[in-house]
C-alpha cells in the first residue's frame, strides 16, 4: 500500500495504482479530467495530456520532485508522494493549453453534433478552456465515412484518443481500423474503407469522447437532452444485457451501455442489444437513470426529490445571497 496526498488530501491505495485512480478514490473536484484514458481498456492513456499533474515529491524514499508535469493516468503512485493538481498554477496553465490544443482543429459544430450534451470535450472546454480562440488558421477537415451500416466516422471531430482502436483490439477478434498518417494529418480509418463488422463494434461509439463516432441509427433523431434515459436490461447470450434506453415518449431512440461518473463503460454491450432491439417490449425497464445535475441532459429530466439534498441546496443558495463566497468545489457538485 502507498500513502500519498493529492492537493493536500491524504489517500491510501495499493502499489501500482495510477495517480488518477488514487484521485478518483478521493473523488470531487480534485480528480484530473481524462480524455484518452479508459480504465476498462488496457494501455489507454498518456496521449491527450489533460490529466497532467505536478509531482512535488516523488516518494518518502526519493523525495525529489519529478522534473516535468506527468500524465496522472499512467504514472504510478509512490509511498509519501505529494501531488498537486488544482493547487498548482503550473498545472492549470498547462491544462488550459492542452484544452486549447484539442479545440484548435475541432470544428465546434456542437449545434449539429449528436454528441452534444454528453461530450467530454464540451465539458472539458466549459470547465478549463478559454471562451475565445487565438487560432486564425484553417481547421483541418476530413470526409465523413460510414464504417459499416451502423457507425458513422466523422474524423474532423476526432481528438485521436485511440480509445476505439483499443476497443477493437481488446473486445473484438479482429481489428480492421487504426490510425494512419502522421501528426495533425493522422486519422482513424479502416483498411481501404473496410466495414467494421463485429458483434462488439458498437462500443467504439460509447468510448469515443467526442462526436467522431456516432450511432447511425440515432443520427439527427433528437438532441440527447430531449430524451428520457432509463436503465433497462434483457437476457442476452452475448453480453450482460444491461443498458440505458434513451426514450421519447414510448419510442426507444437509441440504446447505449451504462457509463459511470467519469463517462466510462464498465460493462460493454453487444451490437444486437444496441442496434436491434428498439422496442420497449424487448426490455425490462428498471427505472429512470440518474443524471448528474450539472449535465445538460439534466434539463427536462426529473427525479424523485431527496429532501435532505434539497434542504442543503436551499441553504447554500441562501448563503450565496447573503454575499458569502461559495467554496468553489461545491458549485458544480
Amino acid at each position: 500500500m502507498a500513502k500519498l496526498t493529492i492537493d493536500g488530501v491524504e489517500v491510501e491505495v495499493p502499489d501500482g495504482t495510477s495517480i488518477l485512480n488514487a484521485a478518483r478514490q478521493i473523488g470531487g473536484a480534485l480528480v484530473p479530467p481524462a480524455m484518452c484514458y479508459y480504465s476498462s481498456l488496457k494501455e489507454t492513456g498518456g496521449k491527450c495530456r489533460v490529466c497532467l499533474v505536478k509531482v512535488a515529491q516523488g516518494s518518502t524514499k526519493d523525495p525529489r520532485p519529478m522534473p516535468k508535469l506527468v500524465a496522472s493516468c499512467r504514472t504510478p503512485v509512490g509511498d509519501g508522494m505529494v501531488v498537486q493538481n488544482l493547487t498548482s498554477p503550473e498545472v492549470l496553465e498547462a491544462r488550459k493549453g492542452v484544452v486549447e490544443f484539442l479545440l484548435l482543429n475541432h470544428p465546434l459544430d456542437c449545434p449539429i453534433c449528436d454528441q452534444a450534451g454528453e461530450c467530454d470535450l464540451q465539458n472539458l472546454a466549459y470547465e478549463h478552456g478559454a471562451s475565445t480562440t487565438r487560432y486564425e488558421g484553417e481547421r483541418r477537415t476530413f470526409e465523413k465515412i460510414d464504417i459499416g451500416d451502423k457507425i458513422k466516422l466523422h474524423m474532423t471531430r476526432c481528438i485521436l484518443c485511440y480509445r476505439c482502436t483499443y476497443v477493437a483490439d481488446q473486445l473484438t477478434n479482429e481489428r480492421v481500423h487504426g490510425v494512419i498518417g502522421r501528426g495533425d494529418r493522422a486519422e482513424i480509418s479502416t483498411y481501404i474503407q473496410k466495414a467494421v463488422d463485429n458483434d462488439f463494434s458498437g462500443n467504439m461509439i460509447d468510448v469515443c469522447p467526442v462526436g467522431a463516432l456516432t450511432d447511425r441509427t440515432f443520427r439527427f433523431k433528437s438532441r440527447v437532452w430531449f430524451t428520457d434515459p432509463k436503465d433497462a436490461h434483457r437476457n442476452c447470450t452475448k453480453c450482460s444485457g444491461k443498458v440505458v434506453l434513451w426514450m421519447k415518449g414510448d419510442e426507444v431512440l437509441r440504446v447505449t451501455a451504462r457509463k459511470d461518473q467519469y463517462g466510462e463503460v464498465k460493462e460493454y454491450i453487444c451490437n444486437e442489444c444496441r442496434f436491434e432491439h428498439k422496442k420497449v417490449s424487448d426490455w425490462t425497464v428498471e427505472g429512470p437513470r440518474h443524471i448528474d445535475r450539472h449535465s445538460v441532459i439534466a434539463q427536462n429530466h426529473y427525479e424523485k426529490i431527496d429532501l435532505q439534498k434539497l434542504k442543503k441546496e436551499v441553504e447554500r443558495q441562501l448563503e450565496f445571497q447573503r454575499g458569502k463566497q461559495l467554496p468553489e468545489n461545491e458549485i458544480h457538485s
Binding site: 492542452v98 490544443f101 502522421r182 501528426g183 495533425d184 493522422a186
Partner: peptide, 10 residues
C-alpha cells in the same frame, strides 16, 4: 510530429 499527444500534434 507523430500525432500521438495533443500539444505536439496541434
Amino acid at each position: 510530429s507523430c500525432g500521438q499527444c495533443s500539444p505536439c500534434r496541434e
